[in-house]
Design a protein around this nucleic acid. Structure first.
Lengths: 132, 132
DNA sequence: CTTAGAATTAGAATTATTCTAAATTCAACT
DNA sequence: AGTTGAATTTAGAATAATTCTAATTCTAAG
């Protein structure tokens, strides 16, 4: 996760700042379309393409993350610490959870896949409290 | 995972059998489009809509699973035992890995999310051997 | 101030997925 | 076997999600 200073050093454009702030200020995971709608509120002339470009850029810089599952649009999430997700198989609700993944599990995954590990994420599929 | 007998009891249509066999016989994870192309080889008149319908049906019956990540089309995978994925952040290559998730981790995830757990899956992001 | 590269814009294009309506198949009943 | 109704399939249209294009604007370096 980047520090405030590091973020400032990126010299984000007006549009990218807006896109970032929309995601930072949201409690929810937003689709690109939702980010676009909210950004328009702050910067009426912003275009869809810019939102997508910004999302890609911010993702590459590690400021936000993209989550996708099953069908439907990707969702964008502010990048905090490493975290995991739970998704409701009834209503599709997505929430963040913070788990301590045992180091051993990461080593095991790296060994099995022969991949050089960068990060690991866990997804719990289940029924959310509202749907239970 | 369903037994052969259970699968037979579903009375799959010709089309659904073809879609299922295409996925079962593939070593790779296939996109809906790839499933369509391969199915056409076996059943030239099959339509795209039927492939999607079949994929949805087979997924609901628990015979196949859908994997999606970042951008691009969903991929479909034969349902074997519970398993996890590793995805290459360079080339996008997706491979299956088999890990033993500690029960404790599942309980922890359920506790944090307040979801009734159904399944849990882990995704390792890293660099595949070819890209290293 | 000029200039080149990067970013933005509007809208078109592409890709992925779902929907629609008509035709077909299938199983259950007479 | 013939009829009926529900489920499925088909072809193609429609929608949704994402990316591309070309023209314009911004920005930072000289």
């Amino acid at each position: 996760m980047k520090s405030t200073t590091e973020i400032e050093e990126l010299g984000l454009t007006k549009q990218r700042k807006v896109v970032l702030s929309v995601i930072m200020d949201s409690k929810e995971h937003l689709t690109a379309n939702e980010v676009f709608e909210l950004s328009k509120g702050l910067l009426p002339k912003i275009s869809f393409a810019t939102v997508y470009n910004s999302l890609r850029y911010l993702k590459e810089e590690g400021l936000i993350s993209e989550v996708s599952f099953g069908s439907g649009a990707s969702k964008y999430d502010r990048m905090t610490d490493r975290h995991d997700h739970a998704i409701c198989s009834k209503c599709g609700k997505l929430v963040d959870i913070h788990l301590d993944l045992p180091e051993e599990l990461i080593r095991q995954a790296a060994r099995h896949s022969k991949f050089k590990p960068e990060s690991m994420e866990l997804t719990l599929r289940g029924t959310c409290p509202e749907c239970k």
